[in-house]
Amino acid sequence: MPAAGTCRASVRRPQTRRFKTIETRARVERIQGYFGDMAVGQGAVQLRLVPALPRSGLSPEEINSRYPKLTTFDDQWAHILNDMTPMIGAMSDNVANYQAVAALPPFALFPWFFVAPGLIVIGSATAAGGPGRARRVLDARLSDIPGPLVEGVK
């Protein structure tokens, strides 16, 4: 069982970072390899070991009582494949998605993507003379237009 501190640390850690070493093409291929090895192992249990045990003089009851996990493993193999195969598929299909998400900047920086442009706009406006200057420019332009039309604009 992990220490409480470890749990708290993993909760604080961003979810994406926890998959950094897992959600890679190389790791997926390694797990695909594990799958192949497991299949060979299960085949050896089912096709060699289980048939060999009765030949050693053990009755089916004795085999079940002495090696219960063999029977369980055999019975559960299809279910293991049913679970494991889609998991590998999901891992494999999401490597690109994960890498795209992981490449994003930390979420804590996101507010600054709105604040920073806002500050730039305000700074630019201030440097250009502020709202008073804009009003003066508008008035100067309006002075070139005939009076009756200007009334409508104002």
């Binding site: 291929e29 192949g36 085949g43 089912q46 096709l47």
Partner: peptide, 19 residues
């Protein structure tokens, strides 16, 4: 064939001696 073509997947249930 495994990714990269390095080896073949062995099917223990194959009827052939070469799995």
């Amino acid at each position: 064939v495994y990714p990269g073509g390095a080896k073949y997947f062995k099917n223990p249930y194959s009827a052939d001696p070469n799995k």
